[in-house]
Amino acid sequence: MTAMYHPTLGVHDLEVAREWFTRVFARPAFRWEDTLDPKLLDPDYPRNYSFFFFIHDLHYVVLCPQLHATGALRGQTRYQDVPEGMIGVGWYTDDAVGMFDRLTEHGITSHDQKGRRITSENPPVSPMAPDIHVGFTDPETAGYRHEFVRIGDRHLEYYSRQADPRLRPDWVRPPVDPNDPLRIERTSHHTFLTADPERAERVYVDAAGGRVIGQRRNEELQALSTFITLGDSVVEFAVPDPKSPAAARVSSGLDYYHGISLQVADIEQVETHLAHAGVPTRRLSTEVTSIDPEAAFGMQWRFITRRPI
């Protein structure tokens, strides 16, 4: 894995979500169809079903499931009837075919963008273009829908210019932008709730090549957390205590993408900006404030001054 591709948030109304993210994060939105050269794509691939934000060092996607399953993706059902909230997380890989082979070796099944099982005879070729490989783990065996993608070399210059600057050879994480009302320093980590941490390690460590970097108690969630680094990101897998509020989220046995923590320079400035933006926050400690899922399309945004690991 080279880096996190993007988390994906599912929403019912793209325009409402676009306005909210623009107001909260003070960054421009850009449409999926503007991120790749259309001359290199299948003209039947659906358009206008998502938009992207680049938030300091985080490539983030908001997608409307009702608009997604059209054109070349007509008939796929992976996001059918999902409530608003996180519906996936993607990773760049240099070898998508090899990655899905390793997942299979560890008992993790996967499907392509049309919902077909990925096998050695059916590699995950995207309907977008033959040199883009995209596939997804089945939640039933992986706990969650994890996406792995390889973008063909001929697309990278355009995509890095239009969507994800981290793909540029000279990119480095920028310092705090003095014009950023949130004063973001970096993405700290992504938090999943799980009842099966061994399964999470099978996907992220055994198959994907990540590394466990620590464990600690998460008192906010009443959970024991394992932190794994993969690519350029850190993922927290939190096992909730029995009968804790978070335990209900994983009672089905599937993992739950709870939210993202951003490290910031000044908590008070974050709260001041969000108050002016009309977004309620909850102060969790002197070092942490959050936008709770009820106010953020089903996921939590935490703003912290110190990373947990």
Rank of each mutant, 00 (worst) to 15 (best):
residue 218 N to F: 06
residue 229 T to W: 09
residue 141 T to S: 12
residue 160 S to P: 01
residue 221 L to M: 13
residue 119 T to C: 12
residue 111 H to G: 09
residue 124 P to F: 01
residue 227 F to C: 09
residue 182 L to F: 08
residue 164 D to L: 00
residue 202 R to I: 05
residue 160 S to H: 04
residue 144 Y to L: 07
residue 198 E to L: 11
residue 133 H to R: 14
residue 224 L to G: 14
residue 113 Q to V: 09
residue 197 P to H: 03
residue 184 I to A: 05
residue 151 I to Y: 02
residue 121 E to A: 14
residue 153 D to A: 15
residue 95 D to C: 09
residue 167 L to H: 03
residue 219 E to T: 15
residue 98 G to V: 05
residue 150 R to L: 11
residue 166 R to V: 02
residue 138 D to V: 07
residue 169 P to A: 00
residue 189 H to P: 11
residue 202 R to H: 08
residue 159 Y to L: 14
residue 196 D to P: 11
residue 182 L to G: 02
residue 168 R to W: 03
residue 113 Q to G: 07
residue 174 P to Q: 10
residue 227 F to Y: 15
residue 127 P to K: 10
residue 122 N to F: 09
residue 217 R to Y: 05
residue 213 I to T: 08
residue 121 E to F: 11
residue 150 R to G: 08
residue 196 D to I: 11
residue 207 A to Q: 08
residue 141 T to C: 03
residue 177 D to R: 06
residue 172 V to Y: 07
residue 177 D to L: 02
residue 200 A to Q: 13
residue 104 T to D: 11
residue 165 P to N: 01
residue 134 V to Y: 09
residue 115 G to I: 06
residue 201 E to F: 10
residue 185 E to V: 15
residue 146 H to D: 09
residue 95 D to R: 09
residue 194 T to W: 02
residue 102 R to L: 13
residue 114 K to S: 10
residue 134 V to T: 14
residue 169 P to S: 00
residue 137 T to Q: 02
residue 212 V to I: 14
residue 218 N to Q: 09
residue 113 Q to P: 04
residue 122 N to G: 07
residue 171 W to I: 08
residue 168 R to M: 07
residue 98 G to L: 04
residue 129 A to S: 15
residue 148 F to Q: 00
residue 168 R to N: 12
residue 160 S to E: 06
residue 99 M to T: 15
residue 172 V to P: 05
residue 116 R to S: 13
residue 205 V to L: 10
residue 160 S to W: 05
residue 161 R to C: 06
residue 123 P to K: 04
residue 185 E to S: 12
residue 191 T to G: 08
residue 124 P to T: 09
residue 189 H to N: 13
residue 215 Q to L: 07
residue 166 R to S: 05
residue 108 I to P: 00
residue 178 P to R: 01
residue 112 D to C: 10
residue 128 M to R: 13
residue 209 G to I: 02
residue 209 G to K: 07
residue 170 D to S: 09
residue 229 T to K: 15
residue 221 L to H: 04
residue 137 T to K: 00
residue 213 I to V: 15
residue 171 W to G: 08
residue 199 R to D: 03
residue 204 Y to T: 13
residue 220 E to V: 15
residue 134 V to G: 05
residue 230 L to Q: 05
residue 197 P to W: 00
residue 220 E to S: 11
